[in-house]
């Protein structure tokens, strides 16, 4: 039987879970499970956003600053006496404006995404600094903090429900809609899609808008959970989200990537982070482990591909 890349990763996630459950004291305690459930959504949403961009062969280095700016948008509304709903709308609008800006320069002018988002990352950071003067905005209504801290039916955190909904929506958009199909096709060969009558710029624009939307949702959860927003909101997730997407099987050159793979990778990271914490490891060692896993997995991929090719070659010469 042949398992898909994603299923193997799912097994690895399960293995990590069991490993930590055995090793780390209190890993299975309801307290700990709970705290993991509250941490996964914000990171997961950013990782999925990054994955969608990477499927087109791009990268969005500005994604966490888009999230931070969206958070600022929400915070401004909330602290000026507006309700939760207008605050959420404002967060989404701020993010979409950023996404549209990225999308415009990538799709219409054709600058490589890494350069564009490198610039907009600094730019958005600057806008946040200019608005917040470098300090944090805090003090949101209690109802708002329910989004990130409350439970649905008293059991599952709201944020997990929101995450699940957006994960499913993203999965459906990518695999079932014509836009999703074009995203994959564009990622595999953008010249061929152009020669097939696909409006590449439209496909790309939607990708950057959608990634920004997910960043906004993540920002809403984060601001609600922390009850404050600052320029570095979520910035530690930037490189981790790329790592999660790549570990999740997304091809960094584009054309392949699945929501489920990315989610498994997010789980793996979360289990490791949490387990190592419980085991008393320094939090910075988590980064070391994550970085090492990323490189190890890709190195193993390289050798197994090489081995497979050799096998094929061998079979071919024997057959001939």
């Amino acid at each position: 039987m042949k398992l898909s890349k994603e299923s193997i990763l799912g097994l690895i996630a399960l293995g990590t879970f069991l490993f930590m459950a055995l090793l780390a004291p209190g890993f299975l305690s309801s307290n700990n499970i709970n705290s993991m459930m509250f941490q996964i959504p914000e990171f997961g949403l950013l990782a999925i956003a990054m994955m969608v961009v990477i499927v087109t062969g791009g990268i969005d280095l500005s994604i966490t600053y888009i999230a931070a700016l969206a958070g600022v948008g929400a915070a401004l509304m909330l602290t000026n006496g507006f309700g939760i709903f207008p605050a959420i709308i404002m967060a989404i609008l701020f993010a979409l404006a950023c996404g549209a800006f990225n999308g415009f320069i990538v799709s219409k002018i054709g600058v490589s995404p890494i350069l564009v988002t490198l610039g907009t990352m600094v730019l958005f950071e600057g806008v946040i600094l200019a608005i917040t003067k470098g300090s944090s905005i805090s003090g949101f209504p209690d109802a708002y903090s329910l989004i990130g801290n409350g439970y649905y039916l008293g059991l599952v955190p709201f944020s997990i429900v929101i995450f699940a909904i957006f994960a499913i929506i993203t999965g459906l958009l990518l695999s079932k809609t014509s836009w999703g199909r074009r995203v994959y096709m564009y990622g595999s060969n953008e010249v061929a899609t152009l020669y097939s009558g696909v409006k590449n710029s439209k496909v790309l624009m939607k990708v950057y808008l959608y990634a920004a939307l997910l960043a906004a949702i993540s920002a809403i959860i984060m601001t609600s959970r922390y009850n404050s927003v600052k320029v570095d909101l979520g910035s530690s997730y930037l490189l981790q989200s790329v790592a999660a997407a790549v570990l999740g099987g997304t091809n960094i050159h584009g054309g392949y990537g699945k929501v489920i793979g990315t989610i498994y990778a997010v789980f793996v990271f979360q289990f490791i982070r949490n387990g190592l914490n419980l085991l008393g490891f320094h939090s910075s060692l988590v980064d070391v482990v994550i970085g090492s896993i990323l490189i190890l997995v890709l190195t193993m991929n390289f050798f197994s591909d090489k081995f497979k090719k050799k096998q094929e070659q061998k079979n071919a010469s024997q057959a001939a």
Binding site: S284, V286, D287, G291, L294
Partner: peptide
């Protein structure tokens, strides 16, 4: 980009540790 992202995590983490 992936390699150096990984080594960034590893090296920065070790330094902090």
């Amino acid at each position: 980009i992936v390699v150096t992202l990984g080594t960034l995590n590893i090296i920065a983490g070790l330094v902090l540790y």
